[in-house]
């Protein structure tokens, strides 16, 4: 990757300085190489994703014999659907429901908790503010897997294992959301506005309600999106907290589908009435992605700015 980008700015300036046509052509060539590389990477990405999604429309026999691309049939989707319904009395759909419960629950709690906290950290003056902000950033940059086993020990000490709501509450603690709200209010809300409100005798809660919530849309969208995706795709926490199959989320359930598949565990699969192959597994994986994609599309216009806002991974 040593042939690094020649900036349009740079090329523009040099061309304006009266570069010879010969030089100009060389420049264009150097311009094409990085773009070609970027396109190549994108094509590899697309190839991987498209062949995977198309696998849901193909038969296992076609995958075996025809390689990356083969005949597609929409009827295949109905077959995949029936197979999933048949597997363990349709437990897949119970998993989807459980995932929806904890991901919506977790994301809604995250928004309700993070928004006022981020506002207070950004706009109010109180003792301990800096310590709390430090703790927020610190917990935000630590992988959320570090506390899974300790959380399990805590939750099992109070006998709440295999219950969904504690998982949603745990997911509701979302320091990245607090930090996003903090940055949001820091950059959008003028301090003078609050001062004016105070002089008019509005209470602090009243100020939050009347001044901060009307401009919260962007922060709400971002916190909800990042929290939802993180909760929906979380694997380690539900694996540990919800050991019973019927209480599992779809993330962990997919693992059960893999280990019940003819492809990866023939001896276990032999006893099952529904045989799962790659098209069914791909279908199960793609179907559970749809809620994430829906939320992604819904929040898309807020995302670009959001990534810049926090400059942080969710």
């Amino acid at each position: 990757m040593s042939d690094v980008a020649v900036e349009p700015v740079a090329s523009g300036a040099l061309l304006a300085a009266g570069a010879a046509p010969r030089k100009r052509r060389r420049f264009r060539l150097r311009e094409v190489t990085p773009m070609g590389f970027l396109m190549l990477v994108a094509l590899i990405y697309l190839f991987i994703m498209v062949t995977f999604v198309l696998a849901t429309l193909r038969s296992q026999a076609s995958l075996l014999s025809q390689g990356a691309f083969g005949p597609l049939s929409l009827g295949r989707l109905r077959f995949d659907w029936r197979q999933l319904r048949g597997f363990s009395d349709g437990i897949y759909f119970t998993w989807l429901r459980n995932s929806a419960y904890i991901a919506f629950g977790g994301a809604i709690i995250a928004v309700l908790v993070a928004l006022p906290a981020g506002y207070a950290l950004a706009m109010l003056h109180f003792r301990g503010r800096r310590v709390l902000l430090f703790l927020t950033i610190l917990t935000m940059v630590m992988p959320n897997t570090v506390l899974v086993i300790p959380l399990f020990l805590e939750v099992s000490a109070v006998h709440q294992v295999d219950i969904l709501w504690p998982v949603a509450v745990i997911m509701g603690f979302y320091p990245f959301g607090t930090y996003l709200s903090f940055v949001h209010y820091r950059t959008t809300l003028p301090y003078e506005l609050l001062e004016a409100g105070r002089i008019d005798g509005v209470s602090e809660m009243g100020l939050f309600w009347r001044v901060a919530t009307p401009v919260a849309k962007q922060a709400v969208a971002l916190v909800f999106f990042f929290a939802f995706v993180a909760d929906w795709t979380n694997y380690f926490l539900p694996l540990v907290m919800l050991p019973t199959s019927a209480a599992q989320t779809v993330s962990v359930g997919l693992q059960e589908l893999i280990t019940s598949s003819q492809l990866f565990n023939a001896s276990a699969a032999a006893g099952l009435n529904v045989q799962l192959y790659m098209p069914e597994l791909a279908f199960a994986a793609v179907l559970q992605m749809l809620p994430v994609l829906a939320v992604f599309v819904g929040a898309q216009r807020y995302l670009q700015r959001g990534a810049m806002l926090g400059s942080v991974k969710g």
Partner: peptide, 15 residues
Amino acid sequence: PGALAGMGNFVLWLF
């Protein structure tokens, strides 16, 4: 691909 993080990504790589 970030949208199919976690198990979704894993099934894709298994494929």
